[in-house]
Design a protein around this nucleic acid. Structure first.
Lengths: 206, 206
DNA sequence: CATGGTACTGACCGACCGGTCGGTTGGTCA
DNA sequence: TGACCAACCGACCGGTCGGTCAGTACCATG
């Protein structure tokens, strides 16, 4: 259909993810895509428009992934939750450049961009997770005295945190962080225990 | 002593935090610092050297903060832990520009920079948290069958995640994320419950 | 054949980049 | 007084930036 602009988007995505908007020149992108600089402007009216297109396409990719993961809601919701988290990490690592790009976008603190991310992408992610958690609550697998939104955030925070801070973690002294998957599994297990917790010996919580 | 370069560092820190290394020109920094561009190069031999100096100073600031927080290790380790996390969020918000700068540095995935961050700053942070957690284990407040490194990571991930993703979270549909402090408190409470969890009704975990 | 639209390009532009240079202060010390 | 020096500046450098434009090649239509 329009493989021309796709090639540009691919090249731009990789470069933007690695060096940010201002760290990459149109010349670089054109060279990586095997075309001339002017051709980039033939397909995209400005550098910023190209960048926005890259971000948008990345988000769409994430959205599709989430829809795919959400498709199989059956069986034990706790197992579904664990599967979801595991697959999410897999996809995060497989599309590391996209994730990095979105994360850097977040560090800019641009509120409007964040709102669009929330509406377009993470909204569904979030809703799906909440439903999964509510289902687990209704079967009695998880406790009822907690906000599913808070719990959902806790789940997604694990992969995001590990992905972002991993380079630091793996250099820590006496570190338990050797394989990211293992670390994520351990943190998730800890969280699930918190989600199952019923006030026992010590004072109860509202 | 040397307020000249300090003024430059202050201006550069704010600008770099907001727009990244490549998004800021020396002219901008000079103007913000109220000096000429040439004077910037009188104090720093290159733009990159200035950027590194900003990052280094930011990290030192974080290190001092941590030393301060670590100073008061007394009483209930669980309360210390909660205080620690609360103060950490306060400081994170108070020095948002520094944190953003370091976070953006992390999105670049530069391994050497990350190693330095790990050695210079987060190493102590991490060790202190682990000690606190071990102490809590020894008093029986927290369970023993978990890695304190994993637990420490879970603690620091809360503030970091909320700080980074907050603009998205607060725009989510039917969101429980209204005040960041409250959300952090809730996530922390959930985590602590996981840390206290003793296998009960359902099957036990190794 | 002409016509028209799309993909694409090299040459070019003004603005701005990081960085340098010669020179001017104002303070310190002998 | 004069020598010295860090701090500072305006002017300038080569080079790169994002962006423009006239023109070419190609491939459909008629």
């Amino acid at each position: 259909m329009m493989p021309g602009s796709t090639k540009i988007l691919d090249a731009a995505q990789t470069l933007f993810a690695g060096k940010g908007l201002d760290g990459v020149s149109i010349r670089e992108i054109a060279e990586a895509a095997g075309i001339s600089k002017a051709t980039v402007f033939h397909h995209f009216e400005s550098k910023d428009a190209l960048y926005q297109a890259v971000v948008r396409r990345s988000c769409e990719g994430i959205g599709q992934l989430l829809a795919l993961l959400a498709a199989r809601e059956d069986g034990d919701p706790l197992i579904s939750l664990a599967d979801y988290r595991r697959q999410d990490l897999e996809e995060t690592l497989a599309h590391a450049d996209v994730v990095r790009l979105v994360l850097r976008e977040l560090t800019l603190g641009r509120d409007e961009q964040a709102r669009r991310l929330a509406e377009d992408v993470f909204g569904e992610h979030f809703i799906h997770l909440r439903k999964l958690l509510e289902k687990a609550q209704s079967t009695g697998a998880l406790r009822h005295d907690m906000d599913t939104g808070i719990a959902a955030a806790s789940v997604v925070s694990i992969n995001l945190f590990l992905f972002l801070v991993w380079p630091v973690l793996k250099h820590l002294p006496d570190t338990p962080f050797v394989r990211m998957e293992d670390a994520a599994e351990s943190m998730f297990a800890l969280l699930v225990d918190g989600l199952r917790y019923q006030a026992q010996a010590a004072g109860g919580k509202a």
